[in-house]
Design a protein around this nucleic acid. Sequence first.
DNA 1: ACAACCAGTTGCAAAACGCAATCGGTTTAG
DNA 2: CTAAACCGATTGCGTTTTGCAACTGGTTGT
Lengths: 165, 165
Amino acid sequence: MTDIRRSGCPINLSLEVLGDKWSLLIIRDMMFGNRRHFRELLTKSEEGISSNILADRLKTLLDEGIITREDDPTHKQKGIYSLTEQGIELLPVLAQMAAWGYKYLPVSKELGIRARLLSEGGAKMWAEFMDELRESHLGVKRRRRTGPSVGERLQAAYESVVKAR
Amino acid sequence: MTDIRRSGCPINLSLEVLGDKWSLLIIRDMMFGNRRHFRELLTKSEEGISSNILADRLKTLLDEGIITREDDPTHKQKGIYSLTEQGIELLPVLAQMAAWGYKYLPVSKELGIRARLLSEGGAKMWAEFMDELRESHLGVKRRRRTGPSVGERLQAAYESVVKAR
DNA sequence: ACAACCAGTTGCAAAACGCAATCGGTTTAG
DNA sequence: CTAAACCGATTGCGTTTTGCAACTGGTTGT
C-alpha cells in the first residue's frame, strides 16, 4: 500500500486509504453481509477477491483503525473482524455510492433492492442501521425496538427478490 | 481501464468506475476548484497528477457519461470539460467522503475548512451547491439568489484560512 | 518569427494486482 | 487414532496499472 501523503485534503486522504477496487467492498460485506471471518469474506463475496489481496487489505484496514481483529474463542485459528466506530461511519459513504450506482449504472435487480431501500430510507434509516452495527460490532447495547431491524428488512427484501427468480 | 463486470452490485459498479486514486480527485477539482481545462487540472491540483493518467481518466469519465468535453471557442486547442448531471450527483459521495476524512484523518487546516462547512451545511447546502453546478456546467438557469453562493462561501472560507498563515 | 502555451502521447521502469499452489496448524468425521 | 476437511494466511510468478519524464504537433501572443 502506498504510504505517501499527497495532500492534506480530506477527500484525498480518504482516497489514499479507501481508493481502490476492494477496500470498500470488504467493508460492504462486513456491514451488509455480516461477514466476520477471513474465509467468509473470501468465499461469500459476489466478486471473488483473491486471498492475498484480502489479507493485504484487512491489514491496511486494521492499521487505519477501520476494523479490529480478535481471536474467535470457538476456534483457535479463526479471527473475528469487527468494524470500529470509524468503520461504521463509512456507511453514509457507501450509501451515497450505492444510491448513485443504483441510479446510473446497470445494477442487477436482486442486488439493487437494498440500495433502493437504503436510499429511500434516508439519513434516518442510516442512523438506525449504524446503531445496529454498533451493537453487533462494538457490543454497544441499544434499547429494545419493536419490529424488524434495518438489517433484517434489507435482508428480507434481498431474499424476496432472489427467491422470485 | 478494466472493463469486466465483477457483479451487479451498485457499490461494486460504482467502484469499477471510480475506485482508484485519481478519478474522484479530478471531479473534486472540477466541482470545488472550477477547473475546466486540461492544463488547469494538470497543474493546479494539490496532488500533482501526471498528464498521461489525467488524459486516461478524462477519457474514462467521458465514456461513462460523468463529464463532457466541448471545444473552447476562444482557443482552438483548448477543450472545456463539464460535469453532467450524473457527475454533479457525485457531490453527496464526495461530501460524505470529505466529512469522514475530516473526522478521522490528519486533514490540513486550510483544506479541511471546506469539508467542515459542507458537512455542517448538510443535505440542503449540497442541493443548493448542486444547483449552482447545474448552472455553471449545464447552463441551467436558476432563479436569483440573494447573498453569496455556496461556491463563493466555500471559496471565501478557504481563502480566509490560507491568508491567515 | 519566435517563445510560450495547449492537449495530449510515448517509452520505460516500478508498483500493484490476480491467480494458483502451498503452508503449518486446527477441527471434525469415521 | 487417524485421515480428511478447514483455517488464515503466504509465496511465486505473470499480467496490468501506475508514475515519471521527455516529446509531439499544433496554436497563440509578442
